[in-house]
Design a protein around this nucleic acid. Structure first.
Length: 455
RNA sequence: CGGGGUGUAGCGUAGCCUGGUAUCGCGCUUGCUUUGGGAGCAAGAGGCCGGAGGUUCGAAUCCUCUCACCCCGACCA
């Protein structure tokens, strides 16, 4: 048993001490309901793995609760998305999930939205809805507080739960009815400024997805009556994707280059199967890639559609009121958890990209009963935690095979294996989940390695 | 919403056609042995068979209704 002198309640199934803002996570006390067998209703790999690895619990069709390990991933994604939003000067807000129907009647979408919208009545028989999206609501907020062109451009975003009563939810969190989404809304003084905003966000999205360990292909999407290239879907490539993406080979090199050029990227050919026409496709056949994609982001410019319908006006520099130009920008945060697994797994389980992994390191202590061995695991555990690294310590009384299988299944990027041999040689094994590479080294060496990683 | 299918212990399942109060595996509990890739033996705990009604001496099984869930299609971050 790993003895932390400052621990309060070793038996408690709670986080019980805090050091450098990291908590001790002993697997024997962690709430991680693993499953050897897959629930019969899970069809695709990410859904199965999410259940088996104890990430989620199904509440109802297309509605999930997030368990500790899954929530850590969800919040890591959320954090990265926020950091990238804040970096380009967008403002973080949180709108209510429940909205009055009146707002939607104003925009004309209350009837247009149909059964996908979850409609609710309160005790006074007034009509409300659980928000499927928030254009009306944000427009309402802005119209009451925004008065002058000097307040523009403005971009408000939130990360909030939404509900769309899909006819047929499927694929777990990838097509749920309740889902967590980053939705942002921009307000600009004119088209030129709106275009600049759009481009900034386009680039920011590519950076965001890259940080999440993904390659996203921005695919031209319908921009309705406005036309032009002012609507893009961001697709990440995975065999189980629902859409088929046709795109120029050059995308992959450009998307991975250090600087992102909007004009260059958006001029390349990338469309979905509906838009692809071999007759008019400008890309030679040997340079055209056809892959399955999962849509994880969608951005579009829609001009004054809502500002006009809902009477959002500000005073211009000429003293006259005008309707700001708007756009909206979504990232499917909860969907990304599934999408990342689709893009990154093997037959043993999940392989988390480091940036979103629930823990960075898993210490696999093979012989807990052995004092010397467990103290090696402990020593490392304490050292890594004090460095601010998230560590999950497998101190369970289980056989080695079970521990290895668990570590592989839940996909922690680095495994440190402390075994009987370690006490004799003073060496532990550092294993990289993704490559399977194993190196023997001393504990100090492991600590050094992660120190370097951090800097 | 149209078409197809499934509800039996926490999970995966047998039994249903041919009615007689439920099978097996995993997991869980206890003990002993084991310990570098999901251990072995032994002893246990756990199920008003999705729900309601009906047929019958008797229903997991047959009939009717209902609810939930899954798959294929059209829609969507």
């Amino acid at each position: 048993m790993c003895d932390f002198s400052f621990q309060m309640r070793p038996e408690a199934n709670i986080m019980y001490f805090k050091l450098n803002r990291k908590f001790v996570m002993r697997l024997s006390r962690y709430f991680l309901p693993l499953m050897k067998e897959t629930p019969a209703d899970a069809q695709i790999i990410s859904h199965r793995l999410m259940h088996r690895a104890g990430l989620i619990h199904k509440t109802s069709a297309g509605i999930y609760s997030w368990l500790p390990l899954g929530l850590r991933v969800l919040e890591n994604i959320e954090r990265i998305v926020r950091e990238e939003q804040d970096r380009i000067g967008n403002h973080y807000i949180k709108m209510s999930t429940i909205q009055p129907a009146d707002l939607w009647i104003e925009s004309g979408r209350y009837d247009a939205y149909g059964k996908e919208m979850l409609r609710i009545k309160d005790r006074h028989d007034r009509d409300f809805l659980y928000g499927p999206t928030n254009e009306e609501q944000v427009t309402d907020i802005v119209r009451t507080h925004l008065k002058s062109y000097k307040d523009l451009p403005l971009n408000l975003y939130q990360i909030q739960w939404k509900f769309r009563d899909e006819i047929r939810p499927r694929f777990g969190v990838m097509r749920g009815r309740e889902f967590l989404m980053k939705d942002g809304y921009s307000f600009d003084i004119n088209f030129e400024s709106a275009k600049k905003t759009y481009q900034d966000i386009f680039q920011s999205y590519l950076r965001t997805f890259r940080r999440l360990g993904l390659t996203a292909i921005p695919v031209q999407a319908d921009s309705g009556a406005i036309g032009g290239n002012m609507s893009h879907e961001f697709q990440i490539l995975a065999e189980t994707g629902e859409s088929t993406v046709y795109y120029d080979k050059r995308y992959e090199e450009l998307a991975n280059s250090s600087h992102i050029d909007f004009e260059e990227l958006s001029s390349l050919y990338a469309v979905d199967s509906e838009k692809h026409d071999p007759a008019t496709c400008p890309v030679p056949e040997d340079q055209l890639l056809i892959k399955k994609g999962i849509e994880v982001g969608h951005i579009f410019y829609f001009g004054t559609k809502y500002s006009a319908a809902m009477g959002l006006k500000v005073t211009g520099s000429d003293g006259k009121p005008f309707h700001p130009e708007m756009g909206s920008y979504g990232i499917g945060v909860s969907r990304l958890v599934g999408a990342i697994i689709e893009a990154s797994h093997d037959d043993k389980g999940i392989i988390w990209p480091e940036a979103v992994a629930p823990f960075k390191v898993m210490i696999i202590d093979l012989v807990n009963s052995d004092d010397a061995t467990s103290s090696m695991g402990c020593q490392l555990h304490k050292a890594l935690i004090s460095m601010g690294i998230d560590v999950l310590y497998d101190d369970r009384d289980e056989r080695p095979g079970v521990k290895f299988a668990t570590a592989d299944l839940i996909g922690i990027p680095y495994h440190v294996i402390v075994g009987k041999r370690s006490t004799e040689t003073g060496l532990v094994e550092l294993k990289h989940r993704k490559t399977g590479q194993v190196q023997e080294m001393t504990i100090d060496h492991v600590i050094e390695k992660f120190k370097k990683d951090k800097s």
